[in-house]
């Protein structure tokens, strides 16, 4: 292991970290702007031009607020909850390829923090850790609303994780690998997986909404029934940590969907661009394409939030268990038969 490797990886990790923070912060701004636009309002426009400094103002406010720990709460777990939620939300992006290998000063640098051959399993592991943040925080608050929000969140997340895992299996049968780098490389040009797995993508998309606790599946923090759900008792930066974790999770699931189903950094006509611009500049266009897709997904998350009403809890569970799981299994069976059928046909 050389020094260059360490420097390169440290730089990548830091850039990715700052990027994640910035995107999460500006998602809070974009969410209000999108809401305002959809509802024919103005939205935040006081702090800076177009309200662009609003995230900084909000962040500053959260730092300077009084923190309250209820007397009945379990103090250590009360702090551990939001810390854990924020911590694990940062880890998901480590295995994502944000572009092709880029050549900087004669050195080929992969635009990916690390390429491990169990990338998809890693993401699933990290994402499912997020439920502990909600569970611990909600239980430690010793508040009935928080407790209900926490158990709702836990059982919702684990229910949709099954359908999500099953929809990924059909994708793996197409890709034959668990490595994100290979999956992204396979979708060269316009061979995006969404064309081969439309149903799988739809199931994954719905599960992503449920896993990130976004409307229409935001029952763990549903204001009309549970005040603030698992974050009822939180104030100052601990409340901000939960909110931040939610927006980072939204970013991570948009990234995962963009890479797994929408080709990541691939776009039609990329070969011509690669030849014209060379190995230093053309990967940057790929990164731009990737972020365009990510932002499109984040916009979709917000669009849905301000147009679709919330589900009832039994509807949520019925959708997860009785609709999505059978659909995902059917998707696996059809994919398997089609692929094996093609292989047998080619052998004849």
């Amino acid at each position: 292991m050389e020094l260059e490797f360490l420097i390169e990886k440290t730089a990548l990790v830091l850039v990715l970290f700052v990027l994640t923070l910035t995107i999460a912060a500006y998602s809070t701004w974009a969410e209000r702007k999108v809401a305002a636009w959809l509802q024919d309002r103005v939205g935040p426009n006081r702090a800076g031009p177009f309200g662009l400094l609003q995230p900084l103002a909000d962040g500053g406010k959260m730092f300077f607020k009084e923190e309250i720990i209820p007397s009945g709460a379990n103090k250590y777990l009360f702090i551990a909850g939001p810390s854990l939620a924020l911590l694990v939300s940062f880890l998901g992006t480590a295995v994502i390829p944000f572009g092709q290998n880029i050549e900087i000063f004669g050195r080929v640098v992969p635009l990916q923090v690390t390429d491990i051959n169990v990338g998809i399993l890693y993401i699933f592991g990290v994402v499912s850790l997020g439920v502990y943040g909600i569970m611990i925080g909600g239980w430690a608050s010793n508040n009935k609303y928080s407790l209900m929000g926490a158990i709702r969140g836990a059982s919702q997340n684990i229910s949709y994780e099954i359908a999500m895992g099953l929809s990924i299996i059909a994708l793996l049968m197409v890709t034959n690998t668990l490595s994100f780098k290979e999956i992204a490389a396979q979708q060269h040009g316009w061979h995006w997986n969404v064309l081969y797995q439309p149903l799988g993508f739809l199931i994954f998309l719905i599960c992503a909404f449920a896993e990130t606790n976004r409307v229409p599946f935001d029952l763990p923090e549903c204001e009309t029934e549970l005040i603030g759900g698992y974050q009822t008792e939180y104030s100052a930066f601990k409340m901000g940590a939960y909110m931040f974790a939610e927006y980072i999770n939204m970013f991570v699931s948009s990234v995962v969907m963009a890479v797994l189903y929408f080709g990541g950094y691939n776009y039609p006509g990329m070969d011509a661009v690669n030849q014209a611009l060379g190995p230093t500049w053309s990967p940057l266009i790929g990164v731009g394409v990737m972020f365009f897709k990510i932002i499109a997904f984040i916009f979709f998350f917000m669009w849905v939030r301000w147009t679709v009403p919330r589900f009832r809890y039994d509807q949520l569970m019925d959708l997860g268990w009785k609709v999505l799981i059978p659909l995902a299994i059917a998707n696996i069976v059809i994919t398997a038969i089609v692929i094996v059928g093609f292989d047998l046909f080619n052998k004849l």
Partner: peptide, 14 residues
Amino acid sequence: VDYLPIIMQLLVAL
């Protein structure tokens, strides 16, 4: 060694 950057990312987040 491929898992080392994950530990680095964990340390930054922590």
